[in-house]
Design a protein around this nucleic acid. Structure first.
Lengths: 219, 219
DNA sequence: CAATAGGGTTAGGGTTAG
DNA sequence: TCTAACCCTAACCCTATT
């Protein structure tokens, strides 16, 4: 009866992935209305997006291993951080006046100074989880997909990722529930409010009050 | 961040139903603050109650066919009428000094004496609509749910209910709009105010002024 | 501002086509 | 038999209205 079943093209998959990076998983209608994606996804509904994202998440290589999709709009118009290990990156949500997510590996915003610089891979993992914004956390597949899509990764990347995730969960930096990883909150200070200073390249700055939410503990 | 989705337990559903019977649909905040329900519904907001009630209303068997929910607090602490056809029952809302609903099949409060005793099923229907207090009326499902929940009904109850509703609407006793039934007001006297006398068993009585609203016409 | 009504959207279980 | 695509709807969100 119905339409014959519309297989997803790699362009559509790319647009969906880019949309999730930009707006977060769960913002299906927002992604659909974004002029950046609306043309490509015009034959899809918000529910289709949700279903496709779920399918890609479950399937081991929904993201990482499709060259056409990867090349299509990789790094389209987002600012991705440099590859320096020591670079602190700070994410401010510009939609409202609150910080939604934040990653840093040094100075300024940490409660306790880290005993050692966090590893590059750890930064990438944090970035992936924060960018994907999946409400109950991201599973290993999605984290790998994100990193593989945004950076050049070795062919056996998952072999490296898996033990790192395990170690981060063991150390308490990540919380693992049902195979999904979230950034650990500071359980000991549930009421804490933090003020975040955002420094711009031109030297100007703003401070914003942060919700107690997801942010990286120093170890 | 987003809580993973909190399914309603049958205890919560029962409390909501009892709350609606006690305070009326639409009085969500009142139901929540009622100490009788506040503990059970502590994790729900007034908006949650509204949404859940809507879902139960739309679903054909949100009420009638869930044994656990039905048995949970059926006839818990409300006074339900006897099964006599001729018994007049009068509902006074004790929260404020106004009558919210009123059903009667004989004497006292009727404008015109009925030509014949109203049927038992008709009484039940009126009681259901008045108790549910849904501003734009109650649909067949909700009426059936209410009656099935408060009384023993035959298995094919809806088969009996449907033609009765149709007949009542045809006769003008009920007004049907968008599949929802209201008690017919007396259109000719929209401004009428009536005083209701409530006789207690010990012979004492009170009078209260009634809103011109929903009440049963003699036919 | 607090509450409700009603439309819109998402999450998650389930089903179907290929 | 497997699974991407699709369906269903409870649960939740957004906004206008009062």
């Amino acid at each position: 009866m119905g339409a014959p079943k519309q297989k997803w093209t790699s362009e559509e998959e790319s647009a969906l992935k880019a949309g999730v990076v930009k707006h977060g998983a769960g913002k299906w209608r927002t992604i659909l209305k974004d002029p950046e994606f609306s043309a490509i996804l015009s034959s899809r509904s918000n529910v289709d997006l949700k279903d496709k994202w779920r399918n890609m998440s479950v399937t081991a290589n929904g993201w990482g291993s499709r060259e056409k999709a990867r090349l299509a709009l990789r790094r389209s118009q987002y600012i991705y951080r440099s590859d320096e290990d020591t670079s602190a990156s700070l994410e401010l949500d510009s939609d409202d006046e609150e910080v939604k997510s934040l990653t840093t590996s040094n100075g300024l915003l940490q409660i306790a100074a880290p005993k050692q610089p966090v590893s590059r891979l750890e930064n990438l993992i944090i970035e992936a989880i924060n960018s994907l914004k999946e409400p109950s956390g991201s599973n290993k597949s999605n984290i790998a997909m994100y990193i593989e899509d945004q950076y050049n990764t070795p062919p056996n990347f998952k072999r490296i990722l898996s033990p790192k995730l395990k170690a981060l969960a063991a150390s308490g930096k990540l919380i693992k529930v049902n195979r999904k990883y979230r950034i650990a909150p500071i359980a000991a200070f549930p009421q804490i409010l933090i003020h975040v200073m955002h420094l711009y390249a031109d030297g100007s700055w703003v401070t914003k009050k942060s919700e107690m939410g997801r942010w990286l503990m120093g170890d």
